[in-house]
Design a protein around this nucleic acid. Sequence first.
DNA 1: CTGTTAGCGCCTTCAT
DNA 2: ATGAAGGCGCTAACAG
Lengths: 333, 333
Amino acid sequence: MAVTIKHVAKAAGVAVGTVSRVLAKNKTVNEEIRIRVEDVIQELGYKPNSIGRSLRLNKTDLIGLVIPDITNPFFAELAKHVEMLASAEGYSVLLANSHDDPAAEQQQVQALLGRLPSGMILVPVSESVIGDLVRGKNTVTVDRPLKGQTLVGVDNRRGGYLAADHLLSLGHRRIAYMGGPPALDVARERREGFVGRIREFQQKNPSQSLAFQTVDGNFDYRAGEELGNRLLRQEGPHRPTAIATASDQQAIGLMRATADLGLSIPNDLSIVGFDDIPLASLVLPRLTTIRQPLAEIARIALDAILNRPSVTKECKLEPVLVERNSTRAWSVR
Amino acid sequence: MAVTIKHVAKAAGVAVGTVSRVLAKNKTVNEEIRIRVEDVIQELGYKPNSIGRSLRLNKTDLIGLVIPDITNPFFAELAKHVEMLASAEGYSVLLANSHDDPAAEQQQVQALLGRLPSGMILVPVSESVIGDLVRGKNTVTVDRPLKGQTLVGVDNRRGGYLAADHLLSLGHRRIAYMGGPPALDVARERREGFVGRIREFQQKNPSQSLAFQTVDGNFDYRAGEELGNRLLRQEGPHRPTAIATASDQQAIGLMRATADLGLSIPNDLSIVGFDDIPLASLVLPRLTTIRQPLAEIARIALDAILNRPSVTKECKLEPVLVERNSTRAWSVR
DNA sequence: CTGTTAGCGCCTTCAT
DNA sequence: ATGAAGGCGCTAACAG
């Protein structure tokens, strides 16, 4: 058995309570004794047992993180930031994937909750099932909302708006929007923001002709490629000169479809993504996209969990347009 | 306070020991009593407290996973498989990033060890520092070796060999190899395997002219692009017609450099990667690569940790060549 | 077959 | 300022 507080106490000739106080840096400990105890701790190589501590205190130094899929670059980046911040504060993170499956999500959340974490950061998949599971559980939700739970994320409408605005101001008048799964609020909001800016333009410039269409699908590469093919196979005046997507992964899939058809980006087609995953600045051409401030999101989420007082019911951060090389001005040809 | 085994016992009119036995599915419990206890558990919504359990049993249901960077698709995939398998067995995984920094790694490992995990899966960064930290700790090492620790990974030499063999049999005679950081065993082994096949060919076909060169760098996209530029800017007969890389990320960076120079893959240049990350089959053209059986690796690693007996000191899995569209036969032109 | 009980390692109150 | 002791929730050994 490992060395415990008892061994230290005996070796130092004091009571366990005193050792505990030394550990807790309690000021009411005699200097001389403190030194002695610390020496013994060094000598014996004593390491506090976090389980005993947790049992007594009825809390752990664990943060649960439940995301759909760690393989998704966006969530990987979120996880990385959360882990960095958490470990800097002495917390460890419990990782669980829900695979976008409500049943799996429920099971994972239950499992984590059983470990009595200090808090939980959740990117929820199912609205209802999870809802009362986490009620009153010091949970914060990222990216997707959950009734009654603090949400931290980006202002998706604003993001969609920015994308549309960028394309419009570049002179594009044949535009398509590739949305995410309509079942997800995030996806709907991004699209609404985008469509909103389009409508706004149409009302202000009723004389200008503007072709606009929408498709929906999953957030992944494959969907981007498939939907892209559908969009781009339209001949002549129906084919858009610019497409905005609801995720960078879609955008990258779309880039592939574009190349497949022998079209050039940004000469024949402008593309703007969403998220700004690391890969976005590494593909060719570098992807213009709507950046989510993930480090910030992670920081706020963790803050909300560690210092309960400062919780707000909703925290929408400002997305920002990152102009790179996948978009270009369009003049009628 | 939550409902404990005591509450259940009182409500069911039995002793705590009996409840514990019901929970443990101990067969020696009277059917009738078992039912009653289970009903009460349902009714009260009792959830076993894993901390009390851990304290008593002196073990947790936690698996530590320490990797360089969750943002790296290869490690993300590893993490995903580990997490899936672990949670299927009732374990949760503690995630920590070492950021390829020995000091951070040491701190992370210490922090995780303090949580008394059942075991730890480690992709080590530093040989020495971590060595005695995990000695005797039920640790298994993945991808990179650590003295005295079980290693599960792919046979890197064999992987390198396969890549070279593929290129050679395709008829390429101007070949380059882009290696990983020479400080890493993995990188060295892959290169040795590759070079080995090249030498073998040269000895068996002394009359054939064969140009071969090597460059080294990091495993990431950026290194792939930079090294690729260096390799491809060589004019005429010095420019390779095929390049193998030590990682898919390098290969994808290289693809970008290739496109930048107006070269076509696989017409002007064949490329073979290493790892087979998800993105490898999504880039254009789809990347021919050496596949690491990650699901298998995760399974074996976890097995080694959960059933100590079956540990072997080293487990080298067979990599497999996945032929896609980034390689093509080369005839002298 | 079931009840009772003794800790697991730690913190904290209550005396001293 | 320090020691003694109780108890967090649970399991396992022992007694009945």
